[in-house]
C-alpha cells in the first residue's frame, strides 16, 4: 500500500472475487434489466413491511455473491454494510443470519464505494483475507422515511430523483488469496471529504452532491498524476442527469475534461426519457446494482479495463433539513482495473 496525498494505491490490489445484484420492478424494466442476478416484479419479496423486504434483498444479494465463490460464509472475515433506513436496520436484519463480523456504515448513496474502499484497506493491510461490501435501498422504505406516505398524492419536482429498489454485494479477497485471480481488482481508493456549495434543496440531491464528486475526482487526479484519458469509464453514483452535468462542468472549470467518458449510475439504471423518474435513480442500491451487474460484467468481458467508481452520498437528515441546514455531501472513489 502506498499513500499519495489522500489516495491509497494498492500495489497488491485486492481482487473482486464475486458480485451479485437484486433489483426491483422498475429496475427490471430499465435498460440494465437483463444484467441483474435477481429481479422481481413483487418488491415486497413476500414480506409484510418494506423494511423486511429491503433486508431480504440484502440477504439475497450477499447469499448470491457468496454462492458464486467457493467459500462458506465463515470464510468472510468482515462485512461492511449500510443502507438508508434509520440506524441501518436493513443491513442489521438482512445480514444477521450469517454470523459474520460486521461493520455498519452510513454513507448514504456512497455506501457501496465506501464499503469497497474499506474492505480493500483491510485486505491490503493484512487484517483480513476475504471481505464483503453490501448495501441496499428500497423505494417504499425510503419514501415513507424521507418523504411522504406512498399513497400521498403529491407531485415531485423534476430535479427530484427516484430511489432505486435493489441491493448489491461485492466479495473481495486479499491479493494472493483470491480464487478468481483474473477478476477486476481495486487499484486505488480515495476517501471523500464532507463537501458543500450551499445547496439546501432536498429535491435536488444531484446539485448538492456534484461538488463532492468533483472534489474527490480532482484530488484523485492530483494525487496520482493520472488523467481522465487513462480510464474507459468514470462513473458516479448517483447524481442523476443534473448532478452529472454539473460535475462535468465543475471538473472542466478545474481543468479536467471528463465529458466524453463520464456517466452516472442514476442515469444508467432507468430510461432517461421517462420523466417518471425525475432526474434519475438514487439510493444506496442504485450504484450498488449498476456496479455489481453491468459494470463489473463489462470489465470481466474485457469491454472496460479501467473504471473510476465514485459513490456520492448526501448526508443530511430530515432534522437538519427542517432546521434549515445545507446538505453536506461526500464522495468516495475506487479505481477498479482488470
Amino acid at each position: 500500500m502506498i499513500r499519495m496525498g489522500s489516495t491509497v494505491i494498492f500495489d497488491e490490489p485486492p481482487v473482486i472475487e464475486s458480485w451479485a445484484s437484486v433489483a426491483g420492478n422498475h429496475e427490471k424494466k430499465g435498460p440494465l434489466g437483463s444484467y441483474f442476478d435477481i429481479a422481481e416484479e413483487d418488491t415486497t419479496f413476500g414480506h409484510k413491511t418494506w423494511e423486511q423486504s429491503e433486508s431480504a434483498m440484502q440477504n439475497m444479494a450477499f447469499k448470491t455473491a457468496l454462492e458464486k465463490t467457493s467459500f462458506q460464509a465463515d470464510s468472510i472475515d468482515y462485512i461492511f454494510a449500510g443502507d438508508l433506513d434509520n440506524q441501518c436496520i436493513a443491513s442489521s436484519f438482512g445480514l444477521m443470519s450469517f454470523n459474520i463480523p460486521m461493520v455498519g456504515l452510513f454513507g448514504a448513496c456512497s455506501t457501496m464505494a465506501e464499503g469497497i474502499a474499506l474492505s480493500s484497506l483491510l485486505l491490503a493491510g493484512g487484517a483480513a483475507n476475504h471481505c464483503a461490501a453490501v448495501t441496499s435501498s428500497h423505494f417504499c422504505s425510503a419514501e415513507r422515511q424521507f418523504r411522504y406516505p406512498l399513497e400521498y398524492g403529491g407531485q415531485r419536482p423534476p430535479t427530484a430523483q427516484w430511489t432505486v429498489t435493489g441491493a448489491g454485494a461485492t466479495i473481495l479477497s486479499k491479493s494472493g488469496q483470491a480464487v478468481a485471480s483474473g477478476n477486476p481488482k481495486i487499484r486505488a481508493a480515495t476517501i471523500g471529504r464532507i463537501t458543500q456549495l450551499g445547496i439546501k434543496d432536498i429535491n435536488n440531491m444531484g446539485g448538492a452532491m456534484a461538488p463532492a464528486a468533483a472534489d474527490t475526482l480532482t484530488r484523485f487526479f492530483q494525487d496520482t498524476g493520472k488523467k481522465p484519458d487513462d480510464f474507459d469509464l468514470i462513473v458516479t453514483g448517483d447524481l442523476g442527469e443534473l448532478g452529472l452535468s454539473l460535475t462535468i462542468q465543475l471538473l472542466q472549470a478545474g481543468g479536467y475534461d471528463c465529458s466524453d467518458r463520464m456517466n452516472d449510475c442514476g442515469c444508467m439504471v432507468f430510461d432517461n426519457k421517462d420523466k417518471h423518474y425525475g432526474s434519475g435513480g438514487s439510493g444506496c442500491g442504485c450504484s450498488a446494482i449498476v456496479l455489481n451487474s453491468y459494470i463489473l460484467g463489462q470489465m470481466l468481458a474485457g469491454n472496460l479495463k479501467n473504471v473510476l467508481f465514485i459513490g456520492t452520498g448526501a448526508l443530511m437528515s430530515p432534522t437538519s433539513t427542517y432546521q434549515g441546514e445545507i446538505i453536506p455531501a461526500i464522495a468516495h472513489l475506487v479505481h477498479i482495473g482488470i
Partner: peptide, 26 residues
C-alpha cells in the same frame, strides 16, 4: 470550505449554475 479550494467555483456561482440548469416544471 475545503470544496472551494479544489473546486474552482464558489457557492454563489454554483447556486446560479444550479438554478439556471435545473429542469423546470411544465
Amino acid at each position: 470550505m475545503p470544496s472551494d479550494q479544489v473546486n474552482k467555483v464558489n457557492s454563489a456561482q454554483y447556486k446560479k449554475m444550479v438554478e439556471e440548469q435545473a429542469p423546470k416544471s411544465n
